[in-house]
């Protein structure tokens, strides 16, 4: 009988300190079959999360139950391949979607508008959008902030929240979006907040809470952080790096 030749690593105990893939052992200089297959599996999950169906209807149903009006929208992107190749098109609403918002004929302005888009991981928003929004809405309502109809956008990039926010005349535009999936986290959701949303805003004008998922940033904590940023943004009339700096100065005092 020929002996099996996988060498285990004597330092497996170090795995308690990190989620990194350490102490994998080896056969010769190569990874074991088991490790190769587990990497393949993680990659498959990440790939699938990008191409997974964005379940707008189920999110819409849940929002209607929370008594919240919903707009179903699309970016200018036609399919996932174009989404990946043309970030510029993912930042703008298609003409039909602009019409949807205009036809609603909303006269008043809002403090906050909230959008949800699949971005790079439909898996993330399919499962995390509703629990997060539940926590956030409660805090916004308690603070007497007015909230625009919630927009669900297929194939959107973060900056599409600028166009939506300006069409809905919101002081602060918030977007929940599927983040670039990692090998160990294919369902990470990011939430971006922009004060005075308008087309052409850049990233330093935004604030962000990322890595929202089970095992990452908890929903309630993320919602609390976004609420604090939203309230401060409206109170101080600023956002992005400016807001972050002025909040950290206040923290230090």
């Amino acid at each position: 009988m020929i002996e099996k030749k996988i060498s285990k690593d004597a330092w497996e105990i170090l795995r308690q300190y990190t989620d990194a893939r350490i102490a994998l052992g080896r056969t010769g200089s190569s990874l074991s079959t088991q490790n190769i297959l587990s990497l393949n599996e993680a990659h498959a999950q990440a790939r699938d999360s990008i191409y997974k169906h964005f379940d707008k209807n189920s999110i819409e149903q849940s929002l209607l139950q929370l008594h919240h009006e919903v707009f179903l929208l699309n970016s200018k992107v036609r399919d996932k391949k174009e989404f990946l190749l043309r970030p510029d098109l993912g930042r703008r609403l298609c003409d039909d979607s602009i019409t949807v918002i205009q036809k609603a004929n909303i006269k008043k302005a809002f403090d906050v508008c909230i959008s949800v888009s699949d971005g790079l991981s439909a898996t993330a928003v399919n499962s995390h959008a509703i629990p997060f929004i539940g926590h956030l809405l409660k805090k916004l309502i308690d603070a007497n902030l007015s909230i625009a109809p919630i927009c669900l956008i297929e194939n959107g990039r973060v900056a599409i929240s600028d166009e939506i926010g300006s069409l809905l005349k919101a002081k602060v535009s918030i977007i929940l979006i599927g983040e670039r999936p990692g090998l160990s986290s294919s369902d990470s959701m990011g939430v971006y907040l922009t004060y005075h949303p308008k087309v052409g805003n850049t990233d330093e004008q935004r604030n962000c809470v990322s890595n929202i998922r089970l095992g990452g940033m908890p929903f309630e904590e993320a919602a609390r952080e976004i609420f604090i940023l939203t309230a401060a943004s409206i109170r101080l009339n600023m956002g992005g790096t400016l807001l972050k700096n002025s909040l950290s100065i206040t923290d230090n005092q």
């Binding site: 990190t18 994998l24 990659h43």
Partner: peptide
């Protein structure tokens, strides 16, 4: 990178 997976930058 341990097992190709950068758990901070989320790439391989």
């Amino acid at each position: 990178v341990p097992g190709t997976d950068d758990i901070m930058l989320n790439y391989q």
